[in-house]
Design a protein around this nucleic acid. Sequence first.
DNA 1: CAATCCCATCAAACCTAGAC
DNA 2: GTCTAGGTTTGATGGGATTG
Length: 322
Amino acid sequence: MTTRPRLGDIVPRQGQEAGVIVGVDFGASRWVREQRRKIVALAAHRTSERSYRIDGTGLNARLLGDGAPGYGAAELADRLLAQPARVVGCDFPFGIPEALLVDEHFAASAGYRDGAFGQWRSFHRFVATALPLVDPLDFSPFSAWREPSRRDRLWARRVTDVVAGAQPPLKDRFQATFQMTLLGNAVLARLSASGRYRVSPFADDDAADAGAGELIEVYPGATLRRLGLARYKDRPAEALQRARNACAAAGIILDVDERILAVCRTYDSGGAAPDHDAADAFVALCTAILYAHGACRPALPASEEARAAREGIIWLPAAAPR
DNA sequence: CAATCCCATCAAACCTAGAC
DNA sequence: GTCTAGGTTTGATGGGATTG
């Protein structure tokens, strides 16, 4: 017998055969300078069937430099296209609640002229058009979605948010996700349109190619709760250890550059409360690695799979290690 | 002078422990 | 069981201080 690939067989794309996995801690400041403090990306390169090297090269090099450790949104998209990854775990809401998807007034209030969005495809394409990746970003086309008098609708959660304990995608006060959801979708649109990535769980003809990489939504806070660590924000070292342990428990070996580990333990993008964005990126990366090995499960209620597939799905480790 | 860094401000929803 | 108080939480922004 022969296993030589025939024409038409699925062959990994350039770069993907190395099994690159990426974790992203997102942020959506208006200015690129601020984005570079908040949007931290970490890559792991597969070195054998179940082992990965997280070193100071490629995407990770910026973490070891003198300047801000992260990326602007457009810049990150460019990097992910230049070196396609097999799985990218991102910590922003990929979708919006179904109640808003089917709401004609919601769509029209931001200038959408074709009724309700109906599905994620229409939503993310509209967002990408209305939010060009310039500096500074202009969120004014979406100001109607911040209307305080309509918060009861606009701040609804998706079913996956309820299960994962996540904030509403369009909440724009205190621990805001509003701008992250919009900027994130502009980035997703760009990656999806390239044909090199498909966006979980959404079907999109642009990326029907089964050889494409995959973008998944993760939530480090929920990942760590699943791993038994609540209130992780002021304990980055422990968060890192839990994430590494979860990989080890799944039989996955991580070889991490000590300098990268040190930055993940110590980097704090500031603010009143500690905010360890590099540690968050590490947790996102570990979650994405677990996903790549079939060790994640969607944060879903038992009976809402169809709706969740329209709203977006947060992925969590399948089980806490013993 | 501009670019960059640093800090105070904002002020909602959830979860949990404890009282009743 | 229900209620409340307190603690916790995917963060952005502008202005003033600092740096080149």
